[in-house]
Amino acid sequence: MKRVPADQTRFARIRLVLEQAAVAPGWRGLLFECLMFGFKQGWACLFGALILALLLGTHFFYPASAPLHRYDFLTLCALAIQIGMIAFRLETWREVAVIGIFHVVGTVMELFKTAAGSWVYPEASLLHIGAVPLFSGFMYAAVGSYIARVWRIFDFRFSGYPPRWTSFVLAIAIYINFFAHHWLPDVRLALFAITALLFGRCQIWFRPLHRHRAMPLLLGWFLVALFIWFAENIATFANAWNYPDQAAGWRMVSPMKMAAWYLLMIISFVLVSLVSPIRRPPLSYRDPTSYDASATLR
């Protein structure tokens, strides 16, 4: 039996058994494949789901008289979750290293954006840098964890992927614009155009069950950005942070924020690509026996 270096868990083995199950063609097979897609997506976003559950749970139930600030409690819990992800081999050490970069990249941006008044953290904390509580870095890490895990679990392959150096240059330009647009013209429309030019033909191939399916990578990024926006609404409702228009009371985050999350998704994707291979689709992707089904556990 092949050694499994990551996701060596009971749930991962259950997933492998389900993936190898014989499914009759027709609507039953399609339904089972859709259920597997949802199961694997949920398993991939475990880190983020736990963080959201903590935000909501502490918002409703954390005692105001507790000797430990809520934000500090969230930081310690997020750290425990990260340790657990490593201890239970849900993430590889290379993935953890990239997630560490997410912490740094996210925290630097948080320091700048809070100083510029883009958003605020309304509660007190001891574990913070400037006006930024340390748990905020783990929210960026949750995005990185999801991308790294979903890449492996769905055995991502790519067709029409541009030269990798172009994606690195694009990600750097996007990150610089997050800061520079406060003094210089906002070039995000140009960045969207360049993104479409580079990745317009790129297809992402993912394996929910026995065979790879394909969708435009640009669409995949949009769907993830949409769900991050949903999560952001939950987080701001839980008073994790507030935008200026939420100072007088919670209101839905503007859908325009999805544009920022879309650009951040590109940065996140490029960072994860440092440790996750950009592989082509199987030569015979219509044949479910043309590749090793256990590959998604690696």
Rank of each mutant, 00 (worst) to 15 (best):
Q8H: 12
R13D: 12
E19I: 03
A21S: 14
A24E: 13
R28C: 08
C34S: 14
L35P: 01
W43D: 12
T58Y: 00
P63Y: 00
S65I: 05
A66T: 01
L68N: 02
R70W: 01
I81Q: 05
I83H: 04
I83A: 11
R89A: 10
L90M: 14
T92W: 00
W93Q: 07
E95A: 13
I99N: 11
G100E: 06
I101K: 03
F102K: 05
M109P: 03
E110V: 05
T114N: 07
L127Y: 00
H128W: 02
P133R: 02
P133W: 03
L134C: 00
L134P: 00
L134K: 00
G137E: 04
F138P: 03
M139S: 04
I147R: 04
A148W: 08
A148D: 09
W151N: 03
F156C: 05
P163V: 04
V169T: 08
A173K: 05
H181R: 13
L184I: 00
V187Q: 13
V187R: 13
A193D: 10
A193Y: 13
T195M: 15
G200N: 00
I204Q: 08
F206E: 05
R207Q: 09
L209G: 13
R211F: 08
G220T: 06
F222Q: 09
F230M: 11
F230V: 15
I234F: 06
A235K: 04
Y243P: 01
P244F: 03
Q246T: 02
Q246S: 04
A247L: 14
A247R: 12
W250E: 00
S254M: 02
L263V: 08
L264H: 07
L274G: 02
Y285I: 06
A293V: 11
S294Q: 10
T296W: 15
T296K: 13
T296H: 15
L297S: 10
R298Y: 15
